[in-house]
Nucleic acid binder design. Sequence first.
DNA 1: TTTTCTATTACACAAACGTATAATAACTTG
DNA 2: CAAGTTATTATACGTTTGTGTAATAGAAAA
Lengths: 217, 217
Amino acid sequence: MQDRRPYKRQTVEKRRDDLIAATLELVAENGVQGATVRAIADRAGVTPGLIRHYFASKEALSRTAYEVLMQQMISDSAAVLSTAPDDPVARLAAFVAASISPPVVDPISVGLWASFLHDVRRDKEFRDTHAASYIAFRDVLQDLISKLPNRANARALRQDAIACNAVIDGLWLEGSVYPEGFEPGEIVEIGLRSVGLLLGVTLNFSAPRALQNESPT
Amino acid sequence: MQDRRPYKRQTVEKRRDDLIAATLELVAENGVQGATVRAIADRAGVTPGLIRHYFASKEALSRTAYEVLMQQMISDSAAVLSTAPDDPVARLAAFVAASISPPVVDPISVGLWASFLHDVRRDKEFRDTHAASYIAFRDVLQDLISKLPNRANARALRQDAIACNAVIDGLWLEGSVYPEGFEPGEIVEIGLRSVGLLLGVTLNFSAPRALQNESPT
DNA sequence: TTTTCTATTACACAAACGTATAATAACTTG
DNA sequence: CAAGTTATTATACGTTTGTGTAATAGAAAA
């Protein structure tokens, strides 16, 4: 009884954030089955009982973690556009390139996506969160396409967005799951050329400043 | 002790097939966490102990089930080509259309794919099985593309195959996870047009005989 | 029919799971 | 400095998990 574990009181936000981050890490690494209450507590540096003090149930923690994940992904893709140039073609190219480059393309995000799939199917709250973020991403893409010169009618616009989104999703999937199957920069190169062909424009690869010193293909 | 459950002896193949089928069903429905030994046995109509009589462990059963799944998917896509016409363009169109139509595109296959992702990551046997089937699928696609008229060099061929595969994967993903987001036939239409644009050919939709009476778009 | 073989059922077990409740110590307030 | 809050730890409970072992019955052989 005497060697009780010492601890420091934290704010509600700090503890919730830590628990959510620990949950996402463990789900990404080992799937939902790896994110047990004990493993989450251990990763977050607390004891298991504390989880129930901040979340009504483990399910509630999972739901919250998924919401946070989706919001992060949305804000990540939006961040790319804030620093992009004004030219519509260049903006689209930057968005496409960012969507199929790290950190969007990595084993972690695909692992999370796959792990939450069944929850998304079964639970309405999960499903609503998923649908909202999916539509948000496609709307951004559709908006970028609509700004291109010589655009056709609305139906073609929608189908163009779906097709480009499919290319992005497919490359995201392949690049994340099977990264050793592609040469460096190959996925971005293929993505830009494919989207360009689909839309009848030429997308040039202009690396963001942080990557400018990497060897271009 | 007297009301022991009656049973009928079965062949090794029958029992193994039943257990594998039950495993895949449960994984597709509820993820790996839903495929417990008791649930599998119940679905297969046996008692839990019998699983250990046919498989060294639950892990061994999972691995075998994944192998069977991948082999099925490969033979399914090959089956489409056996009844396709000789014209290279028509063959490619048939293959693409089949790859983004039911039963390839359905919640079950995506659910299975997502569920096994973590096993594929962690376990070498899973990973080998996955890589083999992935390459096999892309090779079929690449072979079909190479038969098209006016093809370029090998590097372009490889990248064309990756790009087309990405479109197929992306549409497969979106159509399976979010089917209500698309009109009937829209995915096939978009897929054929996109692959055609990527390769510089025109792919026409020719429904297989079994689907001929459905309303074309 | 009787015997033999083994596929199948039945039962048991330790570990891990999510959850519930009580005890305590780190802060805050007076 | 003392009293009060409550965030946090500690512990326990009932299920469910995968696995191990013994008992039994269906089918074939003798």
